[in-house]
Amino acid sequence: MHEELIAIKGFSDGLLISLSPTESWQSVTDQLASRIDEKADFFAGANITVELGERPVPKYELSSLKALLERRGLTLSLVRSASNTTQKSAESLDVPTDNGAAPEAAEPMARETAPVNSEETGTAGVLFRRTLRSGRTIHSEGHVIVFGDVNPGAKVIALGDVVVWGKLRGYVHAGAGGDATAIVCALDMSPSQLRIAECVFRSPPGRRKKIMPEVALVRGDEIVVETRA
């Protein structure tokens, strides 16, 4: 495993990608490209905010980064940088910028990203406290808890587990990075599509007789849905 030069975080409007401000541009962007290609499902269609810290990035470098993202179907929606050079590059490419006033970001964050499964400290997650309606998507590097329903047309994509305290009728992908031990729980499990790692599950058509809390998990090569006493 190579050293982490980039950190990726989900937030309400898409994904925040922080690039190490000290490593060579080439190795940082190479690693970004391979991270995206490894987890294409997780990144699919996301809006990307790139955080560049103090690094002065000339226009041609930034434009190649933009192209790298666009080739993979991603939109560079914001560049966060403390460097004037970088901000000017972004402006000339018509990419919105901000100066990264949130200081927690920059360098220390790159090392902060814990592996998804560290049990002692708990893992990062997102809590969404209302119904996720059609057209909305939550991306998360960690786990996702929705306190409300996930409606048809809404999507949850998480590297970790997904817990829905409500009706699950939309699209959910847990373990989107390939973790087949991920689980999905819901009070009413009727997803339009449910994926865990590489496995796909569709709700059987027709109405269910009894609605109860259920857990979906992978056994063998298949997703099974179980109740837990």
């Binding site: 209302r130 309606r133 059609s134 057209g135 909305r136 409606n151 048809p152 047309g153």
Partner: peptide, 12 residues
């Protein structure tokens, strides 16, 4: 209903 759901999200 799907489209209504979408705009209810925007209204919220």
């Amino acid at each position: 209903v799907r489209d209504a759901d979408r705009i209810i999200g925007l209204i919220e």
